[in-house]
């Protein structure tokens, strides 16, 4: 069985042409990118605003609760109801894109909100106390500090979209999902398993790219200091060294831990 999957994947003929792997891969990436861009354009400003002002928290809860809706239910219902109102090829893509955007919004929204909300109140207080205006506090303090969590939200959304775009092939969307759905329909295991391998690979690469981006998004001050030895080190641990000496035991905050439980 593995051999047949391998030979399907490595047959150059399968990679070329309109329904070939290369173009399906391109479609899959294209849909995902468009969806993430639209969802981010909606969710990032909303999440930042909510975290900054403390208002609209119900939005976040509602978005989170909506995640319990089975994705295929949402996909089928939308294309069933919306499909007849859209003509041509768009009948297949528009409902799918819409649902994918809806699915991508909650994690991005939650990430942007949580990132701003998690900013140490003392830092925000100091910023205001020094005379930064509201928008300055958001731009110069809250957004840079929220960036790692914001990108982490984007990362969840990317995974969600790549996975669900696969399923959307069932309602007619292109992309790598076609191999899985068409293979199932025609009972050709090599095709669907080959497609499954490709989609998994794509998801993995996308996730690694996002992970790297998450790293880049964090200001160097937010990373645990390189020479830090123990997790229990805290900035207020230990006496002040006498002046003139340099500190050689940097005491850093545990950034990973601070994501789940903060002061």
């Amino acid at each position: 069985m593995i051999a047949s999957v391998w030979s399907w994947l490595t047959d150059p003929a399968n990679w070329r042409g309109a329904g070939g792997i290369s173009s399906r891969l391109g479609e899959h990436l294209g849909y995902s990118a468009v969806v993430i861009l639209i969802a981010a354009a909606i969710a990032i400003p909303l999440g930042l605003w909510s975290g900054h002002s403390g208002r609209g928290r119900w939005l976040i809860s509602a978005a989170n609760a909506a995640r319990a809706v089975p994705t295929i239910g949402l996909l089928f219902a939308t294309s069933l109801w919306l499909g007849p109102h859209v003509t041509g090829d768009l009948a297949f893509t528009v409902p799918s894109i819409l649902v994918l955007v809806l699915l991508a919004i909650p994690p991005i929204l939650a990430g942007a909100y949580a990132g701003v909300e998690a900013v140490d109140p003392a830092v925000r207080d100091a910023a205001r106390g020094m005379g930064l205006t509201g928008p300055q506090v958001l731009r110069k303090v809250e957004v840079p500090l929220a960036l790692p969590l914001l990108v982490s939200g984007l990362r969840s959304a990317v995974l969600q979209v790549v996975a669900t775009a696969t399923i959307a092939a069932y309602v007619g969307l292109g992309g790598l999902g076609r191999y899985l759905i068409d293979g199932l329909a025609s009972g050709r295991y090599a095709v669907m398993a080959g497609g499954a391998v490709l989609v998994s690979g794509l998801a993995l690469v996308a996730d690694l790219v996002m992970a790297a981006l998450q790293r880049l998004a964090a200001s160097p001050g937010l990373l645990p200091p390189g020479r830090r030895k123990r997790r229990s080190d805290r900035p207020d641990a230990g006496p002040d060294p006498p002046h003139g000496t340099t500190v050689d035991v940097p005491a850093g905050q545990d950034r990973e831990g601070s994501r789940t439980h903060r002061r």
């Binding site: 140490d120 003392a122 207080d125 100091a126 106390g129 500090l145 200001s219 001050g221 937010l222």
Partner: peptide, 23 residues
């Protein structure tokens, strides 16, 4: 104006409230 007023007053709080993302 509150922001202008604050720029003319030094403000120190517990834990410093330093911006962790800046040197």
């Amino acid at each position: 104006d509150p922001a202008r007023l604050r720029r003319g007053i030094g403000y120190v709080i517990q834990h410093g409230g330093l911006f962790p993302h800046q040197t």
